[in-house]
Design a protein around this nucleic acid. Structure first.
Lengths: 244, 244
DNA sequence: CGTTCACTTGAAAGTGTTCAATTACTGTGG
DNA sequence: CCACAGTAATTGAACACTTTCAAGTGAACG
C-alpha cells in the first residue's frame, strides 16, 4: 500500500482486471456479445493521461466526447454568476463524465484532475455511430445517466437535510463503498481532495470539515494520517449518517 | 386568468397549442418526420388524470413507464432511511418523470400530484420498441436526462451555497421563467405547493420561508395573495439571487 | 359555524460560519 | 540533507443566520 503517489492510482488495476474499472469498456463488453469488437478497441484506446490540476474540459467548452475514467480522481464543479462554485462530484475509475452536456451542446461544469488520472475519450459522434450497430448502447447510456441522477438526488438530500456529522459520515461511507466496489480497501481511504474541496462538496466550511474530522477521531471512529483516513468503526460511522 | 382552480391548469393550453407543452409529444414530433405516427398517437393517448394528493408512483414501485406531464404540478421526493424526505422537484407541463428508475428497475422517489394533473404514460418497453423505428428517440431521451442533471446541479448549488433570500429568489425566478416558457404569466405565480413543501425543497424551515416571503413583501419585491404570488420587481429579485 | 390545517410572527437556542492565529506539511533550492 | 517559503490543515472565539419552540391568526371545508 505504499508510495506510488505520482503514478495513477488505479491504472495498473484497470489493466489487470481486464479493464473492468473502465465504464465504457464494461459497457461495450456487456453489449458486444460475439460481434466484432475491433472498432470498440480503437475508440477505447484513445486514452489520455492527466496531471494533477489539468482540466479534462471546462464549463462552456463545446461538447465533443464523453469520458470514462480509468484511474485517478476527477472533480466536477459548476459556477454561479457571482463566481461561487459548487463541486458536484469526485469521480473515480469506472465512472463516466460529460453526459450533462448533451442538451446544451456544451459543458456546464469544469472537470479537473485532483490527482494524476487516465481517461478514455469517446467522441459522441462515434458513440452515435456505434449505436447503429449495437442498439442497446444508447440504453446503457440512459442507465448510466439514470444512476447519475440518483447520485444527484442523494446529494440533494445530504445538502438539504443533514448536519455536519451526517454529511461527513455519509461522504466517508460513500467513498468507502465506491473504493471497495473497485477492490480497493474499504477502510483505508486516500483523500486526495483538500479539506476545502470536501467542504465545498458537502456544503460546509473548510473549518467545519476539520472540526468534524477531529471529533470523529476523538470518538475513535477514524484515524487521520495526512491525506489518508483510516476508518476504524464502519458500524458506528453508519449510525452517524442518520439523525439521532 | 381567473378561477378554474379545480380544473387542470394547463390542460386546455396543452390541447390548443397542439400539445407543445407535452414533452413526449414534442419528442415524437421532432422525431417522426413524415413517418406513420399512428402508433405514437396510441401511446400518447394513454392518459391519466390525477387528483390532488394522488400518487403517480411511489419509491420502490417497479419501473414500467415514463411519464410526460400535460398539466398540473407533480412533486417528486426521496426518502432517507430515517424517514426524512427531500423534495427533488416540482414538475409542470412539458416535463418528463420517471427516468431516474431506469438503472435500478424501480422508482427511487415518490411522485405525487400537488394539484389536479394530467399525464401521458409511455410504457418503457414500448418506448424501446419505438426506438427501433425512430433511432433518434433514445438520444432525445438522453437530452432530457441531461437537462435533468443540469437542473440537479443547479439545485445543489442552491442547497450548498445560498442563504435563505438567495434560495427563495432563485426559486421564484425559476418558477417564473418556467411558467413564461409555457406562456403563462411570468409575474403572477400560483404557488400551489405549501410553504412547508417549498421549505423542504429549498432546504430551509417552513418558518424561514414565511419570514423571507414577508421580508420580500416589505421590500416591495412581491405581493402575497394567499397562494398567489405577484412578482413586482423582477430586476430587484434577480439581484437577490447572488451574494451581495 | 366550528374545527382543522396552513400560514405567520416572536423569542430563545443551536449550529455552523467567519475571522484570526497557530501548526503541520510539501516542495524547492542551497 | 537541511533551511526556507508557501500552502494546507487545525484550533479558538465571536458572531450571524437559521432553526426550534410556542403562540396566534386566518382561510378552508365539512
Amino acid at each position: 500500500m505504499p508510495s506510488h503517489q505520482t503514478k495513477i492510482a488505479a491504472e495498473t488495476d484497470c489493466a489487470t482486471v481486464s479493464c473492468e474499472n473502465c465504464g465504457i469498456f464494461q459497457l461495450c463488453h456487456s453489449v458486444g456479445g460475439d460481434t466484432d469488437l475491433s472498432v470498440l478497441d480503437t475508440i477505447v484506446k484513445s486514452r489520455r493521461t492527466m496531471k494533477r490540476g489539468e482540466f479534462l474540459y471546462r464549463a462552456g467548452d463545446a461538447f465533443r466526447a464523453i469520458y470514462a475514467i480509468r484511474g485517478g480522481v476527477i472533480k466536477t464543479s459548476i459556477f454561479a454568476s457571482d463566481g461561487g462554485a459548487q463541486i458536484t462530484g469526485f469521480h473515480i475509475a469506472g465512472e463516466v463524465l460529460g453526459l450533462d452536456a448533451i442538451t446544451a451542446g456544451r459543458h456546464g461544469c469544469d472537470a479537473v484532475a485532483i490527482e494524476a488520472a487516465s481517461v478514455c475519450e469517446v467522441p459522441f459522434a462515434l458513440f452515435k455511430e456505434l449505436g447503429k450497430e449495437f442498439p442497446d448502447l444508447p440504453y446503457k447510456m440512459l442507465e448510466i445517466m439514470s444512476r447519475d441522477i440518483l447520485h444527484s438526488h442523494e446529494l440533494m438530500l445530504l445538502l438539504g437535510k443533514k448536519n455536519a456529522e451526517e454529511r461527513l459520515a455519509t461522504y466517508l461511507l460513500n467513498m468507502s463503498s465506491r473504493m471497495a466496489k473497485r477492490s480497493f480497501s474499504a477502510t483505508q481511504l486516500n483523500m486526495n481532495m483538500s479539506r476545502s474541496d470536501i467542504g465545498n462538496y458537502l456544503g460546509m466550511a473548510e473549518e467545519t470539515v476539520c472540526r468534524t474530522f477531529s471529533r470523529f477521531q476523538e470518538e475513535g471512529l477514524l484515524t487521520i494520517r495526512r491525506k489518508q483516513i483510516i476508518l476504524n468503526d464502519l458500524a458506528r460511522l453508519r449510525a452517524k449518517v442518520y439523525r439521532r
